[in-house]
Design a protein around this nucleic acid. Structure first.
Length: 478
RNA sequence: CGGGGUGUAGCGCAAUUGGUAGCGUACGUGGUUUGGGACCAUGGGGUUGCAGGUUCAAGUCCUGUCACUCCGACCA
């Protein structure tokens, strides 16, 4: 019995989290490795998840007045070089195109690691007057960053994302936009992905190359490591000056535009997996799950069973994303395990005995509870159940975050925490980069963000003892 | 780029002192099954990462090389 099943067994998530992670994303058929190292193939089930994320975010962007557009994949080297901090930040990890057919190009082209430079170049042509502002554009695209070590979703050489790029006539308005999008990301994570996040600002050391300020949402994974899940940058007129994006204001004077950019990537899928998954596999929040309800029939060869399955499917399909698993070549037991592995939030089991009683069994993935439900009540029960699962998953993730949040007042306390634990550690910080470098060297943890909501732990920096400026969240990170 | 590890069937592994490659699973076919990863029968699948060397004989020993992977540094 044991040796029959061992290939199917999942790695236990507590034993080795990294193995567990790669194990389930492959077995749940979200991704596969590509022939080119560092790249991943997103399989249909994984891509449906991404499509659902896209759908929700896209509608939120449109509600706030943004429009989608598309810009080229390749960026001439000269454009990339226009903003020096930006190029310094990205140069080590860009991929270059040097040939067109057999001919060597006179100027090599980089595959976009992000589109600021390309988009700024176009914006400079499009903006003449304050009447052209604000310009609110988003792009859904792929980008390439030649990373040394990769892991599917979390850090791949190519990833899918959206990048919003906006121009404004005042600094105030641009900053408001930056914070507005930051809030959209945070709300999206909590409401749809059931991932609680810490909202805050990045330190000078951690901010985006070329930005004046970077705002971030940080999520804590099941193993106590943090994941930067979405960023929103305020550029001031840094890029505008480098790319000559000017407009005439109401007084007729020429002025540089103020700019923002913000992005969320397929990395967030890694976040969903590592926030909610368990020893049985994925656990997807109902609001984003490709399949919300799966119907597994027992003894399906008996005629009336399949009829009943069909009826239930038709009924529920009006309101939910439903799939009926009527594959004959797999046993019911296999299907139960397989759909748990794939993280479907609700499962309906139905067989001859249930049909006789005009009922079925409803199973919830988050708590493993089973209940017998009369068929006439099914739609209503499922409706409530999905809402309940969604909020329960958020609550469980919040509890886990709280459980893994510590505070330290001294450097000794701080390093001791990281010797045996993983999680957020709240400390006071003087604001200098030397102290950031020091904790990274000692514990390989970094300042994740300066939260919007700071607490007062003490008056002095936990690292150097000088007067503290901020309370910060630190953690080891993905 | 530094330190460790591994390369044998799609995947996971085995092969004693050097003796000519096997097991599980997955896959094909036929049948029986179906309330928690079904069973029986049967079949296909391999230049043992690559190159060279020692030997009557190399998966096994030697030399070189390549690839992958884990831990560090760099990063959404």
């Amino acid at each position: 019995m044991d040796d029959k099943n061992y290939v199917k067994e999942l790695t236990k998530m507590d034993d080795n989290f990294a193995d567990w992670y790669t194990d389930i994303i492959l077995k749940a058929e979200l991704v596969d490795y590509a022939p080119v190292k560092g790249f991943m193939v997103i399989r249909p089930y994984g891509y449906e998840l991404w499509e659902n994320i896209q759908k929700v975010l896209d509608s939120k962007f449109k509600e706030t007045g943004h429009k989608n557009a598309y810009f080229p994949l390749l960026i001439p080297e000269s454009l990339l070089n226009k903003e020096k901090e930006h190029i310094a930040g990205f140069a080590p990890e860009v991929a270059w195109v040097t040939h067109g057919g057999d001919n060597e190009l006179t100027e090599r082209l980089c595959i976009r690691p992000t589109s600021e430079t390309m988009i700024c170049t176009m914006y400079a042509k499009w903006i003449k007057s304050h009447r052209d502002l604000p310009l609110l554009i988003n792009q859904w695209a792929n980008v390439v960053r030649w990373e040394k070590t990769t892991r599917p979703f979390l850090r791949t050489a190519e990833f899918l994302w959206q990048e919003g790029h906006t121009l404004h006539s005042t600094a105030k308005e641009a900053l408001e936009e930056t914070l507005k999008m930051h809030k959209i990301y945070a709300d999206f994570c909590e409401e749809y992905l059931a991932i609680p996040v810490i909202k805050g600002k990045k330190s000078e050391k951690e901010k985006f190359a070329g930005a004046e300020a970077t705002y971030t949402i940080e999520a804590l994974m099941h193993d106590g490591k943090a994941l930067q899940s979405g960023t929103s940058h305020y550029f001031g007129n840094h890029f505008a000056k480098a790319f000559d994006i000017k407009f005439q204001n109401k007084e007729g004077k020429e002025e540089y535009a103020y700019q923002t950019s913000w992005g969320m990537s397929t990395r967030i899928i890694g976040g969903i997996i590592m926030t909610h998954g368990d020893d049985r596999g994925l656990k997807l929040p109902p609001n984003i799950a490709p399949i919300q309800v799966v119907i597994v029939p027992f003894a399906q060869h008996k005629d009336n069973v399949l009829n009943e399955v069909e009826k239930i499917k038709n009924l529920l399909s009006k309101k939910f994303r439903v799939e009926a698993d009527v594959r004959e070549e797999y046993s019911p037991g296999y299907k139960l395990n397989n759909w748990e592995l794939k993280g479907v939030p609700v499962r309906i089991e139905i067989g001859p005995k249930d049909i006789e009683n005009e009922s079925c069994i409803v199973f919830r993935r988050d708590t493993f509870e089973k209940q017998t439900v009369k068929l006439e009540d099914l739609e209503e029960i499922i409706s409530k159940l999905l809402i309940d699962i969604q909020s329960n998953m958020l609550q469980m993730a919040k509890d886990n975050t709280i459980k893994h949040t510590y505070t330290a007042k001294t450097l000794e306390e701080y390093t001791n925490i990281f010797k045996e634990k993983q999680g957020y550690v709240k400390i006071m910080w003087c604001g200098c980069t030397e102290c950031e470098d020091k904790i990274k060297e000692l514990t390989s943890s970094t300042i994740r963000c300066i939260p919007f909501e700071e607490e007062h732990i003490s008056d002095v920096c936990a690292i150097c003892g000088k007067p503290a400026k901020h309370m910060v969240y630190t953690a080891r990170q993905y």
